[in-house]
Simulated assay, not measured.
Amino acid sequence: MANNQQADTAGAIPLGMLCGAGAGALWGLVFLAPELARPFTPLQVAVGRYLAYGLLSVIMIAPRWKNLKRSITKKDWEALFWLSLCGNIVYYVMLSQAVQKGGIALSSLVIGFLPVTVTIIGSKDKGAVSFLALLPSLLFCLAGALCITWQAFDAPQAGSHSVSGFFCALVALVLWTAYAVGNSRCLVRLHALSVHDWNLLTGIVTGAQALLLSPVALLSGPLNYDAGTLGRFVAVSCAVAVVASIFGNALWNRMSRLVPLTMTGQMILFETFFALIYGFLWESRWPRPLEVVAFVCITLSVLTCVSVHHKHATRGRRAVDGLMENGV
């Protein structure tokens, strides 16, 4: 029986990694969207994406709404409001600003530190890995951050736009970290709602916020776009909503059930990897040396972090097994 379970686990991990890679490939397109919709302001890009996401979520959740609404508490709605505002609307405005000013490569490299920032916050939780054990990971993180900072400030091609893009990406990283931590803690306490329903509810709340911000978004840029430009904007908004928010999240949730928790953070590297590829293809260039070094440092930082957590979990299991063997 145990051998069959081990075989099932061994078979699930490759499939889980494929799902993680698929989610990363789809989420990486989010970094390309602001470039495809460059005539529009970051606020317009964010509102367009989340209006489409909200509409799709309403359509998908409508058949189950009568039964589902009884399971949603006031606390859930409050959490959904702040998570949607912080992790979707404001985050994507800052990310779009970072992409349009600093480029896809710089923005994706900064956001690539998400697993490390989340882990640092998580290290304060009871029973978590100690800060000292995370030091090697943090040193790699610092080295990568220095490379990105040098690229943004001192590289020959850098200018005021690159610097402002870098700071916008930093703000986006802080917002996405807050969202990841808050959303994770909400999912832990959810019992009556599935992960899929939580994703759709997030889409509905984000869509409502985007609708309220629509007048501001219209006034944030010129209104004299031709039909072709408007058509491309609508197509990009709908594509990002379907590809990233619906299918990307679905693949990520599937992956989360197939691989061990210690591997989940590592999978976010696929988003950075694909976003960089899309960025280099869009800009028709090879990665610069500092970008290569930064990506290597990010990878080593996340892998070191995962390794520490794996050893910590193994020691914990051995301790529990020892207590059980001693009859405690």
Rank of each mutant, 00 (worst) to 15 (best):
M1C: 07
D8V: 15
P14H: 10
L15H: 03
L18I: 12
L18Y: 01
L18D: 05
A23C: 00
G28R: 03
P34C: 07
R38W: 11
P39M: 04
F40D: 00
T41Y: 02
V47N: 08
L55T: 04
L56E: 06
A62M: 15
K66C: 04
N67S: 15
L68N: 02
R70H: 10
D76Y: 02
W82T: 06
L85R: 10
Y91L: 08
M94K: 02
M94S: 12
M94Y: 06
G102Q: 05
A105H: 07
S108F: 05
V110I: 06
G112H: 09
G112K: 02
G112C: 02
P115E: 02
T119Q: 11
G122F: 09
V129P: 06
S130C: 10
S130E: 10
A133R: 02
A133G: 05
L134Q: 14
S137K: 07
L138R: 08
L139I: 13
A143Q: 09
G144F: 12
C147S: 05
W150N: 15
D154V: 12
H161N: 15
S164Q: 14
G165M: 08
L170Y: 08
V171C: 15
L173S: 03
L175H: 07
A178K: 05
Y179T: 07
A180S: 13
V181Q: 14
R185I: 08
L190C: 14
H191V: 02
V205H: 01
T206C: 01
G207L: 06
Q209C: 11
L211E: 04
L212R: 06
S214A: 11
L218Q: 11
L219H: 09
S220M: 08
N224G: 13
D226F: 15
A227E: 04
V234M: 14
V234G: 08
S237A: 15
A239T: 14
A239L: 04
A239D: 04
A244N: 09
N249T: 01
N253D: 00
R254G: 00
R257P: 03
R257Q: 12
P260W: 00
L261D: 05
M263F: 13
M263P: 07
T264P: 10
T264H: 10
L269N: 11
F270D: 08
E271K: 08
T272S: 15
L276Q: 11
I277A: 11
E283R: 12
R285V: 08
V292C: 13
V302I: 04
K311R: 15
V320T: 15
M324N: 14
N326D: 14
